[in-house]
Computed example of a mutant assay.
Amino acid sequence: MNYQTVEQLTEMKLHAMKLEYARQEELPASSELSFDDRLAMIVTAQYDARVRAKTNRLIKKAELREPTASLSDIDYDSARKLKKTDVVRLADCQWIKSGNNLIITGATGVGKTYLLSAYGRQACMQGYSVKCYRTTRLLTNLTIGKGDGSYNKLMKDLVRPDLLILDDFGMKQLDLGMTQDFLEIIEERYHHQRSVAISAQLPVKDWPSVFKDPTIADAVLDRIVRNAYRFNLKGPSRRPTVEHMPAYADDSASEKEYIEQ
């Protein structure tokens, strides 16, 4: 009977249940548990395994720039002007459920991408779908899409996730076409009450300078900023300096190869 049960669990691909069942069979103390207790442990094992698998799929699909970033590992050094209470307040991701936005600003290297990725990963762990893009690259892909016919599909893909992460916004001024595309993205997500999380070096007050058309700038900012939580990170760059980088035997390696090692 035990063999048949194991085979059936295998055939139904209930592998976590099979492992928990086998574990209980090997432990003499399990015989002291009631049937209901043992069944509950077996079902819980399968449920937890499916939750983990779903979370891993969501994290992989999100394509976060820092996929292992975690809110529990945030550094609250006083120089960063980052309050733990403010970070934890958003950890339940209710702001995503409510369709609110998140804005993280600060100088280069202060940890904007890490914090943004940590919230993205937290959202995945809460069961929300997430997608992360570098802003300029995304807008370039949309421009290309107008020529190769992929524009409409990409735009639809930008509406689907519960949370859309746009990293490195404002690195350069957007031309009129990119400005209109950015408005289209924000307008569609605003219409569907879906959240956007943005990181930028520029303070929010300077964002209008990124857009070629001031009218479009007003429309975009009204839809993003009005219902957004904000973090403005301070402090020195957290990226390793040259003297803290690992040394390599081959001094002839290119800069690209050096960085990638």
Rank of each mutant, 00 (worst) to 15 (best):
H192E: 10
K212A: 15
I186M: 06
A200K: 00
V210S: 04
Q180R: 15
A219C: 08
D213L: 07
D213E: 14
L202Y: 07
H192T: 08
L183F: 15
V220I: 11
A219V: 09
G177C: 03
P208F: 03
V196K: 02
M178C: 04
V210W: 05
D181V: 11
F211D: 03
M178P: 00
P214Y: 13
P214R: 15
R194G: 08
A217D: 05
A200P: 04
S199R: 02
I186G: 02
H191V: 02
F182C: 05
F211C: 05
Q180D: 14
I216E: 06
K212W: 14
I185T: 07
V210L: 05
M178D: 00
I185E: 14
I198D: 00
T179S: 06
Q201W: 05
S209P: 04
I198K: 01
E184Q: 13
V210G: 02
A217R: 05
G177F: 00
Y190I: 01
M178W: 06
I216V: 08
T215E: 02
Y190G: 08
V204K: 11
I198P: 00
I185Y: 10
M178I: 04
H191N: 08
L202V: 07
Q193F: 10
D206H: 15
D213G: 08
I185P: 07
L202N: 03
F182T: 01
L183K: 02
A197G: 06
K212I: 10
F211G: 03
A200N: 06
R189M: 02
P203Y: 11
I216N: 08
A217G: 07
I216A: 11
I186Q: 02
T215K: 12
K205C: 04
S195G: 09
Q180N: 15
A217Y: 07
P208T: 01
W207S: 05
Q193E: 15
S195A: 12
S195Q: 11
S199P: 00
Q180P: 00
P214W: 15
P208N: 01
I216G: 02
Q193C: 13
D213R: 03
V196E: 03
L202E: 02
I198L: 06
Q201G: 03
H192I: 03
K205H: 12
L221C: 03
G177Q: 14
D206C: 07
R194S: 11
S199Y: 01
I216H: 08
A197V: 04
T215F: 11
E187Y: 09
A219Y: 05
